[in-house]
Amino acid sequence: MIDQQTVDVLRGISTATLTTVLFKKGLRNVWLRGAQPIRPGQPRTVGAAFTLRFVPAREDLATPESWSSPRSTRAAIEAMPSGCIAVVDAMGVTDAGIFGDILCARMAKRGVAGLVTDGVVRDVDGVLSTGLAVWGKGTAAPASVAGLTFVNWQEPVACGGVAVFPNDIIVADSDGAVVIPQAMLMEIIELAAEQERLETWIMSQVNEGASLPGLYPPNEENRLRYEKSKTQQ
């Protein structure tokens, strides 16, 4: 899992900054396509990935009776630890809602930090009322079994075209959701925090009327000015 201090630091770093830093480290495919906030103004949310996976519906398996199976979304929710972010591989299907208000309410009650999916949810008014932060492609009235079969949890998934492994770190905000490989977390945090500080300084210079060439990115002169500004804080 991820400790609270790390969560607090990442809550201060935008997904835009994270994608830039990850790009500089050679990782281009980290932004989960289709995972957009379903509620405007959702706060930036951070947590370890708890993965769930759907496959195309098969009529003998995708039935209402499957909801009572030991291998079901219901059972997966009961295994979710507090503070995690549920990352659901729904293969981009948009005509069957993976979760509705009751499942989201249970996730919220268990302390799950958020839900990120390349699919859609249903019962959207109820989902919004639970307070659970959700990122996805939108909404659909039909249940998941109308188009999907749930197969497992806590295994590698492909969500929005991105490989997500259990316990990778997810950061989601108004720009969408980004995955940070668990093994790279501390290095990325250090680089991203410095990038945020630099860009805050650059913005202050822009607000004072400075032109962009040589400032963004900073040349040697502006880099020295930036380093000097840090010692004066």
Rank of each mutant, 00 (worst) to 15 (best):
L18Y: 13
G136E: 01
T231D: 09
T51H: 05
V162H: 03
G119H: 09
D125L: 10
D125P: 01
E221T: 11
A141M: 12
R71T: 15
V120D: 09
V179M: 14
V127W: 11
G100E: 06
A75G: 11
G34F: 05
D173R: 00
I188Y: 08
I2H: 04
T63Y: 08
T200L: 10
R11P: 05
Q36G: 01
F165T: 07
V179L: 03
T149I: 11
F165N: 11
D123Y: 05
E199M: 15
R11D: 03
T149D: 09
G97W: 04
T94C: 09
A16E: 14
I85Q: 04
T231A: 13
P217K: 06
R58S: 10
K24I: 02
W201R: 08
C84E: 07
A133N: 14
V93R: 13
K230M: 13
M186D: 15
A86C: 07
K109W: 08
F23T: 07
T63F: 04
F54Y: 13
V171F: 10
Q154D: 14
G176N: 05
P56A: 10
L52A: 15
G92R: 00
G92Y: 06
L10E: 02
G26V: 10
L22F: 06
R58W: 03
L103P: 01
V134T: 04
T231R: 13
G126M: 09
A90F: 02
I102H: 10
Q232M: 12
I85E: 00
S211Y: 12
W153Y: 15
P64I: 06
M107Q: 10
V127P: 02
R110G: 07
V88P: 01
I98G: 00
M203W: 11
S69V: 02
L212I: 15
N152V: 13
Q233W: 10
R44F: 03
A76R: 07
N222C: 01
D60L: 13
A105W: 09
Q154C: 11
K109F: 10
K137A: 15
T20N: 13
G12D: 00
L198F: 03
A183C: 02
M91H: 02
R58F: 06
P40I: 00
M91P: 00
I180D: 01
K228H: 10
G41I: 00
R223D: 07
P37Y: 03
N219C: 12
A172Y: 12
D175G: 07
L198C: 05
T117I: 00
V206Y: 13
G126H: 09
V171D: 06
S174C: 07
N222A: 04
L52S: 14
F54N: 12
